[in-house]
Simulated scan of single mutants.
Amino acid sequence: MEEKEEKGFVIKDRRKFSMDEAEREPAGETIEEPKAKDEAKAKAEFQEAAKKEEEKSRLSLPEVSFSTFVFSLSSSALVHLGEIPGPDTQRVQVDLPMAKQIIDTLGMLQDKTRGNLDPDEDRLLKTVLYDLRMRYVQKSSQ
């Protein structure tokens, strides 16, 4: 019959609780300490789980690029303009100050990236900004 190896370490609490107990050493609490083999096994299992999770997320999320970033901001602006329902509530709500903030952020991005975008990215940003600005003006004048 195999003996089950005990895992663990002992923690001794040496704090003094009162002046009378100054000479007395309180009993320690026993807490299990993983052995080196178990640590290596746990680390390997963690890495395996992390790889699987990373693979799952890579399959479900689009590649990060300038275009997907612009589309993400644009979608957020459309939610705040009340053009599409919010992803969490599935309700249409208008929040013009938040929509303006996102549109201004896209405008700042256009200014800061001027001359550094390829023609397709530049055209996408200009088109999205034009569309969002027109929608904002229309919503704010209602």
Rank of each mutant, 00 (worst) to 15 (best):
H80D: 15
L61H: 03
E48S: 12
E53Y: 10
F66D: 05
K37F: 04
E55G: 01
A36F: 04
A44K: 11
E21H: 10
V92G: 03
E25V: 10
Q90H: 10
R58C: 01
A40F: 02
L96H: 02
S67F: 04
E55I: 00
F69C: 14
R24N: 08
P85R: 01
P97I: 04
H80P: 00
L96D: 00
A42R: 09
M98F: 06
S76W: 06
P97L: 04
A77F: 04
K41C: 01
A49F: 09
S65M: 07
L96F: 02
F71G: 00
G28Y: 07
L96A: 06
F46K: 12
H80T: 02
V64R: 14
E45Q: 10
K52V: 06
S57T: 06
K56M: 10
P97V: 01
D20G: 11
S76L: 14
T89D: 13
T30E: 15
V79T: 12
Q93W: 01
S74G: 11
G86T: 02
K52W: 12
M19W: 07
R91W: 00
A40P: 01
T30M: 14
E33I: 03
P87I: 08
S18D: 13
E55D: 05
G82C: 02
E29F: 06
A49G: 07
G28Q: 11
F17I: 10
E32F: 09
A40E: 09
R58H: 00
L78Y: 08
S65C: 07
F71L: 15
L59T: 03
V92M: 09
P62L: 07
L61N: 05
R58Q: 07
E48V: 05
K52G: 05
E45I: 05
Q47C: 08
M98N: 07
V64F: 13
G28R: 10
I31Y: 11
Q93A: 10
M19T: 09
A44E: 09
D95S: 07
A50W: 09
L78Q: 13
S60I: 05
